[in-house]
Amino acid sequence: MTDLEGRLALVTGSATGLGRSIAVKLAERGADVIVNYARSATEAEEAADLCRAAGARVTVVQADVADPAGCRDLAGAAQDRGALDILVNNAGITRHARDHADLDALTKADFMDVYAVNVVGPYLMLQAARPLLEAAHKASGRSSAVLNTSSIAGIQGTGSSVAYAASKGALNTMTLSLARALAPAIRVNAICPGFIGTRWFRDAMDADSYDDTVRKIEAATPLSVASGPDDIADAALFLLSDASRHVTGELLTVDAGMHLG
Rank of each mutant, 00 (worst) to 15 (best):
6 G>T: 05
7 R>D: 11
11 V>D: 08
15 A>N: 01
17 G>D: 07
18 L>M: 05
23 A>C: 14
23 A>T: 07
27 A>H: 00
29 R>T: 00
39 R>N: 11
41 A>N: 05
44 A>G: 13
44 A>W: 10
48 A>Q: 05
56 A>H: 02
65 V>G: 07
66 A>R: 05
72 R>E: 11
80 D>S: 12
81 R>E: 06
84 L>Y: 11
90 N>C: 10
92 G>E: 00
97 A>N: 03
98 R>P: 08
100 H>I: 04
103 L>W: 14
108 K>C: 05
109 A>V: 02
115 Y>P: 10
117 V>F: 08
117 V>K: 01
122 P>D: 05
122 P>K: 06
133 L>Y: 01
136 A>R: 04
138 K>W: 13
143 S>R: 11
148 N>P: 07
150 S>N: 08
151 S>L: 11
154 G>F: 08
155 I>Q: 15
159 G>K: 12
162 V>E: 01
165 A>G: 09
168 K>Y: 01
178 L>G: 02
182 L>C: 04
211 D>M: 09
215 R>H: 00
216 K>S: 02
216 K>V: 00
217 I>K: 10
217 I>R: 03
221 T>H: 03
223 L>V: 14
226 A>R: 03
244 S>K: 00
249 G>W: 03
253 T>Q: 04
258 M>L: 13
258 M>E: 13
